[in-house]
Simulated assay, not measured.
Amino acid sequence: MTSSAGGAHVPGRPGGRTAAGATPQAGPGAPPEEAAPEEFDLEEAIHQVEAEEHEGRPPAAGLLGNLVVAAAVVVLGGAAVVGSLAFDAGSARSPEAGTWPLMVSVVIVVLGLGLVATARRTTDAERFGRTSWLVLAGLATMVAFVALIPVIGFEIPAALLAFVWLRFLGHEGWRTSIVTSLALVVAFYLIFVGALSVPIPHLF
Rank of each mutant, 00 (worst) to 15 (best):
161 L>Y: 13
19 A>C: 13
162 A>I: 13
112 G>P: 10
49 V>S: 04
174 W>T: 12
11 P>H: 11
146 V>R: 05
201 P>V: 06
43 E>F: 13
63 L>H: 04
63 L>P: 01
22 A>G: 01
105 S>F: 08
172 E>V: 02
176 T>E: 06
183 A>I: 12
32 P>N: 03
9 H>Q: 08
153 G>W: 08
61 A>K: 07
111 L>F: 14
21 G>P: 09
157 P>D: 12
25 Q>K: 15
58 P>T: 06
171 H>R: 14
117 A>I: 03
61 A>Y: 08
49 V>N: 05
195 A>V: 14
151 V>P: 00
28 P>L: 06
150 P>C: 01
198 V>E: 01
111 L>C: 06
132 S>K: 03
55 E>H: 07
114 G>A: 07
171 H>V: 04
2 T>F: 03
123 T>C: 00
17 R>I: 09
200 I>V: 15
34 E>Y: 02
89 A>R: 05
16 G>L: 12
90 G>M: 08
4 S>E: 13
140 A>V: 14
175 R>W: 12
198 V>T: 06
138 G>T: 12
151 V>F: 02
145 F>K: 00
32 P>E: 12
183 A>T: 14
101 P>C: 08
27 G>L: 10
97 A>V: 09
9 H>K: 12
82 V>K: 12
134 L>S: 04
196 L>I: 12
91 S>L: 07
166 L>Y: 10
171 H>L: 09
43 E>Q: 14
183 A>E: 05
93 R>C: 00
42 L>C: 00
72 A>H: 11
91 S>H: 11
61 A>P: 03
51 A>S: 11
174 W>S: 06
71 A>L: 15
96 E>D: 14
67 L>H: 01
139 L>D: 06
70 A>E: 02
107 V>P: 00
42 L>G: 00
44 E>T: 08
145 F>C: 08
28 P>G: 04
165 W>M: 13
3 S>D: 15
59 P>E: 13
7 G>K: 08
4 S>N: 09
30 A>W: 04
57 R>L: 10
